[in-house]
Nucleic acid binder design. Sequence first.
DNA 1: TGTTGTGGCAACTCGCTGTTGCCATAATAA
DNA 2: TTATTATGGCAACAGCGAGTTGCCACAACA
Lengths: 233, 233
Amino acid sequence: MKTPRKPETRRTEGLRTHGRSARVVEKVLNATAAELGRSGYAALRIDDVAARSGVNKTTIYRRWPTKIDLVSATLRAQTYPPEVADTGTLRGDLLEHFAHLVTMLGTTTGRGVVRTLQAERTDPEVERMKRELRAEQRARRCQLLTRGIARGELAAGVDVDLLAELLAAPLVARLMHSVEDLDRVFLERAIDVILAGAATTVARAPQRGAVAVAGVGSRAPKVSSKKRRTRAP
Amino acid sequence: MKTPRKPETRRTEGLRTHGRSARVVEKVLNATAAELGRSGYAALRIDDVAARSGVNKTTIYRRWPTKIDLVSATLRAQTYPPEVADTGTLRGDLLEHFAHLVTMLGTTTGRGVVRTLQAERTDPEVERMKRELRAEQRARRCQLLTRGIARGELAAGVDVDLLAELLAAPLVARLMHSVEDLDRVFLERAIDVILAGAATTVARAPQRGAVAVAGVGSRAPKVSSKKRRTRAP
DNA sequence: TGTTGTGGCAACTCGCTGTTGCCATAATAA
DNA sequence: TTATTATGGCAACAGCGAGTTGCCACAACA
């Protein structure tokens, strides 16, 4: 694993981004996603990507000098699910949101993305992309929750950030173990418990059992926080 | 990455498990845990373990033929927190349980364990250990919940398996991102929301907002599944 | 004090990442 | 169409880290 230098690009003037080149990029990126889904990040072999894409290994290295670069570009090239439609209820929106996500994650490229995200701390660039993806998904959930507040389904004082995180947690946690176990029934039940908890705690009306209940309101501290040469990606 | 065979062990008859050998095993396992915490699984180098432990690389390979074997043995050698004391309330028990866990995970070896568990699908043996660890922790949580039911803090119909999973999920999910962010306040608030949700949903008394609530009781389908050689570790 | 299990040392093999030089050809400009 | 040049294919190579091997030294036991 020789450390690659930042070599002067071959490029001297105009570069070609159409025709053959574009086709090569597409084929390689697709092949990488597929191989990631099959083998995961650690076991990904550039030779396999080359074979699957029908593009020579050298060509791949010329465009993406390291494995990380290639994977990073592949993640970047993924298109993520569009905005979720308004189903009329918060519960419906959330269900749809997560169902959409689960479907995505079930595809070959989806599995590739998951396995890459699972992969150990790799390099700052990939870490940054992970954070971006998480932030994006989280923002989407916050949006749904805010809509729920507007509808009166949730009290205004609810900590949206916390709720968004709690709602996603069961999915994330299961993802770590086995993507296969991610069924809708489970997600539905998880959502129901958490939404009920949110409704109750903010209403400060603990039911029967002597469960001590601290607030979920906005009083407590918030939870949220917040290269190299390539020819022509 | 040559695939190692399962060679005939050097051993012919009696083996030595005391004195020098025992010291070697201890030093190597400690060094491995430390290196795992520092570099993670993927970047772990046997040479580094050898250097840190002061034991020769060859010796390490003789005992643990592959990197996986070494890491696997290291995980196995970890001692996990003892049973949680009874604090008198379910909330207190859970809080203590998770606080204990967080403390553990903060140590060098703890970080090593986490990073190994995070690591991509490695080999069946490590996967098995992951499952075992998870099952063990989950059982502990179920135990606490059952105690809570006995105390009358939770309705008898509650789905203990589901609850245990939901309670652990926020911690697991955060663990994936950054161990540092795992503060007690967060865990406390998460626990409170989920416990409140459990109390409410089982009581079938949806609050104000039109949050539709499916049961958490025992009516819905259950979630749970259950279902080399080494010289002398 | 002999026997043997075990560790140290050094020099291997092997697979995979990443390189390099040369030649072939597709994309562009004239 | 033709000249020009960016880009891809090919093959051989360098480097690193995992895993081996043979030989010798020594510590644990009898």
